[in-house]
Write a protein that binds this DNA or RNA. Structure first.
Length: 436
RNA sequence: UCCUCAGUAGCUCAAUUGGCAGAGCAUCCGGCUGUUAACCGGAGGGUUGUAGGUUCGAGUCCUACCUGAGGAGCCA
């Protein structure tokens, strides 16, 4: 007896097979029962005719409750003309074994009807089973696989950066503080400083891991814990890493569009805007961005960072991601290299996703001058002793280098067309949610 | 931190001017041989987020608090 995955069911047409899974949907009609099974690879309808199985099996099937776990054996066959069922094949059941029947007194809480977001987030551990969430996390898997593959194939070395850190990368107000024996530690908000050390050892490196920001942000684009991939390239300029970012995004899109047809269909994602995206992406200086925004009615003033509405407005002018570079130094982190031609702007850049999804990448060229960095650390009121090791990188074989960070959930939210990044991660952490 | 909104059955929501708390789904019982969020008949299910106040009378009005959602600032 072949034990099969639902995804492969069509290859077993005409044969007897066994599927193990969970009951997604249940309908009965006197002498016929329809079960829709879910096994993690797909959905398949099983049909139970009273005359074709033992009375015990029929009764068991009739009493099954949503999300009960079970093992079903039967003949796989094409769905009859004029009928429909998920996947195009169905199973005529000959035997059924209940692994666990969900008790009716405490039924599975997520019915196929509508639910509110608070309830669904409380039930996140069960919500993952629904087809929409399943599709999103499959896309996330492909985005991550494409990202790692992209860097691995270009000679990058994966170097993991620590999660406990002694100090902030970019200021202390957004750090989670945790006790660390007799001292304090902070959860990392970026692996970048460590990546710079690794770049001096390996040339081209990337880190990929969770990142923590204690920002009290409550918007569709924020999580307190999110995953970030951060490449750092020795001897690269701002322009080099913009080209790298462009290639990365293109490769992720091409892999998802190639591998996730059914998932994007489940999500009702419009494919046109994704298919149109191809290099080169437009590159705008911050100055150009501000003047475009002003001409479109924004109240932005030179010197401040782009707000969410500004990002959306700007991105709407183009049909592909927009790269905005050379922001005012004041609005950026201490380690950004000033433009030698215009010291008031930094060799930094953000990549804004289309369709209002906003910033998905931020990065730039790193400052190399030891004196400049010491001065900036002081200006930002950062604890100088915590950065001594970092300054060593300028003392021993100083080198120009550039890199960026890309937020995985924002990319997934954009590609999937989600309204909120919280659906782009299995167990979201937001300002007011720590469970499940 | 600030602004806005919400909280009524397990879930999604109603409840007129302050006047008997109700429906669909889910659950239980019964019916139905191709269902598609199946359908048809019946049943059970409530301290209206918490505490106070106004009133003959509060789900509804007032105050505080709690919980959550949307947004701003900030960010990936």
């Amino acid at each position: 007896m072949a034990e099969i995955a639902i995804r492969d069911a069509a290859h077993h047409e005409g044969n007897s097979a066994t599927v193990r899974g969970w009951l997604y949907h249940h309908r009965s009609s006197g002498r016929i029962i329809f079960l829709v099974l879910r096994d993690g690879t797909g959905l398949m309808q099983a049909i139970i005719l009273r005359n074709a199985v033992s009375p015990d099996v029929f009764q068991q099937a009739k009493d099954l409750t949503q999300e009960s776990s079970l093992e079903v054996t039967g003949i796989v066959r094409r769905v009859p003309e004029g009928k429909t069922a998920p996947g195009g094949v169905e199973m005529e059941v000959t035997d059924l074994k209940t692994i666990q029947r969900v008790p009716a007194e405490r039924p599975f809480p997520i019915s196929p009807k509508e639910h509110g977001i608070e309830f669904l987030l409380d039930q996140r551990h069960l919500w993952l089973r629904s087809s929409r969430q399943h599709a999103i996390l499959k896309v996330r898997h492909e985005v991550i696989a494409a990202t790692r593959n992209f860097f691995d194939q270009r000679g990058f070395t994966l170097v993991d950066t620590p999660i406990f850190t002694p100090a902030a990368c970019e200021g202390t107000t957004t750090l989670f503080e945790v006790p660390y024996f007799d001292e304090k530690a902070y959860l990392t908000q970026s692996g970048q400083l460590y990546n710079e050390a690794a770049a001096a050892a390996f040339g081209k490196v990337y880190s990929f891991g969770p990142t923590f920001r204690a920002e009290k942000s409550k918007t569709r684009r924020h999580l307190t814990e999110f995953w970030m991939v951060e490449p750092e390239v020795s001897h690269a300029t701002l322009e080099d890493i913009l080209a790298l970012a462009e290639d990365l995004i293109s490769e992720i899109l091409s892999r998802v569009l190639g591998n996730c047809d059914s998932q994007l269909a489940t999500l009702n994602r419009e494919l046109g805007p994704l298919r149109r995206i191809a290099p080169p992406f437009p590159r705008l200086t911050y100055d150009e961005a501000v003047s475009i925004l002003k001409s479109k009615g924004s109240t932005i003033e030179w010197g401040s960072d782009l707000g969410g509405a500004d990002e959306t407005l700007l991105a709407r002018q183009f049909d592909r991601p927009v790269m905005v570079h050379r922001y005012p130094s004041e609005a950026k982190a201490f380690y950004m290299e000033p433009d030698p031609n215009r010291p008031e702007v930094a060799l930094s850049a953000d990549v804004l996703a289309p369709e209002g999804y906003g910033e998905i990448i931020g990065g730039g060229q790193r400052a190399t001058s030891l004196d400049f960095l010491c001065q900036r650390i002081q200006e930002h009121r950062l604890p100088a002793e915590a950065f001594e090791w970092y300054l060593d990188l300028r003392r021993y074989g100083n080198f120009p280098h550039s890199g960026f960070g890309m937020g995985i959930e924002r990319v997934v939210a954009w590609i999937c067309g989600l309204e909120h990044v919280r659906e782009a991660i299995p167990f979201p952490r937001t300002i007011y949610r720590l469970t499940p």
